Simulated assay, not measured.
Amino acid sequence: MTLSADLTDTIARLLAPLIPGGQQPVLQPLLGDGSARRFFRVFAGGRPLCLAALPAGGSQRELAEAASWLAIVRHLHQAGAPVPQVLGADLSIGLLLFEDFGDCRLHDLLHRDRPRGLALYPEIVRRLAQMQVRGVEGFQTDWCYDAPCYDQAVMVERESLYFLSAFWVDTLFAEEVAGLREEFERLAATAAATCQPLFMHRDFQSRNIMVGEDRLGFIDFQAGRLGPPAYDVASLLIDPYASLSDRQQHQVFALYLEEMGRLGGVDLAALQASYPYLAVQRNLQIIGAFAYLSGRRGKGFFRGFILPSLIMLQNRLADPLFTDLPVLRQTVATSITTYRRMI
């Protein structure tokens, strides 16, 4: 990937205090995940200095996303969350320079050394709880480029209908089922009824948790906003990349509740009551995202996680809590049968 001399010069200017003797930085392109942003590892004098992120284009939305990341990361860093330190930025082009947490994600570690990866979950949920509670203090919703809070409208429009459009219609080529939208509204209303807004990462899963030799790092929080804390812990526990057993999920959730209780000021009963509904919401979002990324964006890596996510959703909907969602239950069952034929 060829970069303009102007961009290299801009990075050199922003990093001047860290680069000895006025050396020009060398940029190594990195593969992104589901993001359309471009990432580079920045070297000087043969050693890595930081990571650089650039939007794929220069649209107002992309520049607003970069500004949102910058404001949120500075806030979270001040709150003591394990997020990257900012080393420089030029928001006129959406350029961000920040601490490099390395290449090992929790997802990678779980595949390479699963016992070691699983042993990190108590510390992960402890740091998550702290980030949620401390991160809400002084948080300004005008930092959010997308939506200031995770509410009923976001649940329906960005998650349930994402499942409907990206998976059910675009992937299975099926027609919308009568009554499904009404059940989506009912699910979201129930989930929203017990919300206690804290800081919400919005994509807290094993590919966004970096593992170093002696520290953890949380990344990809530019969609952060105010929202129910149970959503982030659900994202972690039902993460299809990690495939935690039901027993492991229960154990980690208990540790999370224990830390929330220790921090104080959190309605634990409301958190527990909202969890099953938010887990379904997250499950719908996951399937929609995997279908979109593998289909419209051509990222085949995500395709292999669609069926496990569907099965996980079917199992969750079997809970008596969801007897009032018969159309969704049948839609998911039909999805599994149809998708299995397609693959």
Rank of each mutant, 00 (worst) to 15 (best):
A153K: 13
C144E: 09
A147I: 05
D142L: 05
R158I: 00
Q140N: 14
Q130N: 09
V136N: 00
R134V: 02
Q140K: 08
V156T: 04
M155K: 09
C144R: 06
M131I: 01
G135M: 00
L128D: 10
V156G: 12
C144P: 07
A153S: 15
D151F: 02
E157C: 02
P148A: 06
V156C: 11
L128V: 01
W143F: 02
R134M: 03
Q140H: 10
D142H: 15
L128F: 08
Q140E: 14
E157A: 13
E157W: 05
R134G: 10
F139P: 08
Q132E: 10
A147D: 07
Y150W: 02
V133R: 14
D146N: 12
A129Y: 11
Y145E: 04
V154D: 13
V133I: 02
D142I: 05
D146L: 15
Y150Q: 04
P148G: 04
F139K: 00
E157H: 13
Q130D: 11
D146M: 10
R134Y: 09
A153E: 10
C144I: 02
Q140S: 12
F139V: 00
Q132A: 07
M155V: 09
V156E: 08
Y145V: 04
D146E: 12
T141F: 00
Q140A: 14
G138H: 05
V133P: 06
Q130M: 06
Y150S: 08
E159P: 08
V133Q: 06
F139R: 07
D151H: 08
E157V: 02
M155L: 15
E159F: 04
L128T: 03
C144A: 09
G135Y: 00
Q152H: 09
A129I: 05
E157T: 04
M155N: 10
W143T: 03
A153T: 12
W143M: 01
E157Q: 15
W143H: 06
V156K: 12
V133F: 00
A153C: 11
V154A: 14
Q132N: 04
G138E: 03
P148L: 01
V136I: 07
D151A: 02
C149G: 13
L128N: 10
Q130H: 14
M131L: 11
V136L: 07
M131H: 01
R134H: 13
A147Q: 15
E157D: 13
C144L: 08
E157S: 11
G135A: 03
L128G: 08
D146W: 15
E157K: 09
R134C: 07
D142N: 13
V154R: 11
L128E: 09
P148M: 01
L128I: 04
V136W: 01
G138Y: 04
E159Y: 05
Q130V: 07
V156I: 14
V154N: 11
A147V: 03
V133H: 00
P148C: 01
V136K: 15
G138C: 00
R134D: 08
Q130S: 12
E137Y: 04
Q132R: 04
V156Y: 14
E137T: 08
Q130F: 11
Q130L: 12
M131C: 06
Q132V: 04
V154L: 15
D146C: 10
A147H: 12
W143L: 06
Q140D: 14
M131D: 06
T141V: 12
A147K: 14
M131A: 10
E137D: 12
F139E: 00
